[in-house]
């Protein structure tokens, strides 16, 4: 990584922040902190998207994730009465196998990325226009797009069916 390029400095800062935030998400003993730090991590990934010239995706990420999904999570936290504030036992006791698997995964993924791509540069950043994305969705990916819309519909109905209280009980 060439630190004489300003972009790389930005990347480094954002990346370190994201890693720190996501560590808080999985380690924190406070549920609220975890959920809020997920916002931080996702915000970081939105910044990464902008760095990669994908403003539209970044915008969608902010709107959908940070605007909607996190709110949903907060509702979930409150409805299921997860102990808000510091709790003693948010994790179970068997941490070491999990940590070993996670570290090994990181080693394999990062190692293979470095081994296969080395120092290959991403060519100069030029933003993809939103109209191009629109054209791609409705030309090349129109069938997956429709499928995804059905998935959303199914999820909507499924959510209602699952969460609704049984009239008898």
């Amino acid at each position: 990584m060439d630190l004489s390029v300003a972009q790389n400095w930005f990347f480094l800062i954002i990346a370190l922040f994201m890693v720190a935030a996501s560590l808080v998400v999985v380690i924190s003993r406070n549920v609220m902190h975890a959920a809020l730090m997920l916002v931080g991590a996702l915000g970081g990934s939105a910044a990464i998207f902008i760095l990669l010239g994908a403003e539209f995706v970044a915008g969608v990420l902010v709107l959908v994730y940070i605007g909607a999904i996190i709110v949903l999570f907060l509702f979930g936290v409150m409805i299921t009465r997860v102990p808000i504030g510091r709790a003693r036992s948010l994790d179970h006791d068997n941490r070491w196998p999990a940590a070993a698997v996670a570290i090994a995964t990181f080693a394999v993924l990062a190692g293979s990325a470095v081994a296969f791509f080395g120092d290959e540069e991403i060519e100069g950043v030029s933003a993809v226009r939103t109209s191009d994305i629109g054209a791609t969705i409705f030309e090349r990916f129109v069938v997956p797009f429709e499928v995804v819309s059905f998935v959303l519909l199914a999820a909507l109905i499924g959510g209602i069916v699952l969460a609704r209280k049984d009239p008898e009980s």
């Binding site: 179970h92 068997n94 196998p97 999990a98 698997v101 090994a104 995964t105 394999v108």
Partner: peptide
């Protein structure tokens, strides 16, 4: 979660 540890661990073994 024990199953999941085995799942991810097994996948790693395969990859390696």
């Amino acid at each position: 979660q024990q199953y999941a540890v085995a799942l991810f661990g097994g996948a790693l073994v395969l990859v390696v």
